[in-house]
Amino acid sequence: MDKRPGILESRKKIRFQDCDPFNHLNNGRYLDYFINAREDQLLEYYDIDIFRIVREQGLGWVVSSSQVAYLKPVFTMEEVVIETQLVRYSDKHLLVEARMWDSDKKVLKSVAWLNFVHFNIRTNKVERHSGEFLELFREVVIPVKSTTFEERHRSFRPQKTASTD
């Protein structure tokens, strides 16, 4: 069996209704694009239909916290590439990194860390991941060296030298 990819990628077009009066993607909408892309990618790459799992098992993942760095503006009707990857997991939690690039993947527009908790909507309680999910997580996780979002965010910024400060 082929190894499943750890970095998932999709393309999205930025829509007018998601932008502010300056034609920039509204800050609050970045999370929508990241989460929607991740949902689509899980289905496409891993055949995981999170909505079917919720309907049939009452299990899902909810965002427990998020952090977003806005590096470059994203404009109305711009096509972007959204990459996501699992960078950390535990028996009840996931940390997913999402990156938004220009269409050529040369300019990083935004980076986010999304913390998810595995939740049972029938019992209204946090629940442990199944062995099947933990096996998938072990296979696809790609840890990052940074231990905080601020460190990771800084790692994407150009390094300043003494002469450019």
Rank of each mutant, 00 (worst) to 15 (best):
R88K: 14
P73T: 01
S103C: 06
V117M: 12
T161K: 07
V80R: 07
N27I: 02
G131C: 05
D104M: 12
D40T: 10
D49H: 15
T76P: 03
N26D: 04
S65C: 05
I53S: 01
T84E: 09
R88Y: 08
T161I: 11
E39L: 13
Y30S: 00
I48T: 03
L42P: 00
S155Q: 09
R154N: 09
D40W: 06
K145W: 01
G60H: 03
R122G: 06
S146W: 02
V117L: 12
M77A: 07
K109F: 03
E132G: 04
V126L: 09
D104A: 15
A112L: 07
S90V: 04
W101P: 07
V140N: 03
N36K: 06
V111F: 12
F156R: 08
E151I: 04
F119M: 08
L134W: 03
F133L: 13
E150A: 15
E56S: 14
N36C: 07
Q67A: 11
V96Q: 04
K72T: 13
I50W: 10
P73R: 01
Q85I: 07
S64W: 00
L108F: 08
D91A: 15
H118T: 05
R138K: 15
F51T: 01
I50H: 00
L94F: 12
H118Q: 09
I50F: 10
H129P: 03
Y89S: 09
I50Q: 09
R38N: 05
E150Q: 15
D102L: 07
D47A: 13
Y30N: 01
F75C: 02
S103E: 15
R52H: 10
Q159I: 11
Q67R: 13
T84Y: 12
L71Y: 02
T161W: 14
V107L: 12
E78Q: 10
F34W: 07
Y70L: 06
R29G: 01
R88S: 11
F34S: 06
H153M: 15
H93P: 00
S66M: 02
H118E: 03
A112S: 13
D32P: 00
E135L: 10
G131I: 08
P158D: 04
Y46M: 11
W101S: 05
I50D: 00
T148I: 06
Y33H: 08
L94E: 06
P21D: 11
D102H: 12
I53T: 08
R52T: 13
K106D: 08
R99S: 14
L86F: 12
E139M: 05
H118M: 09
T148K: 02
V80Q: 04
N36Y: 04
M77G: 00
E44S: 14
I142D: 00
S103N: 13
V87T: 12
I48A: 00
L25N: 09
R99H: 13
R122N: 14
I50G: 01
Y30M: 00
L134R: 07
L108W: 10
K160W: 12
S155Y: 11
A37T: 05
V140H: 01
L31W: 07
V54M: 11
V81N: 14
Y30A: 02
S155L: 11
Y45T: 02
E79W: 08
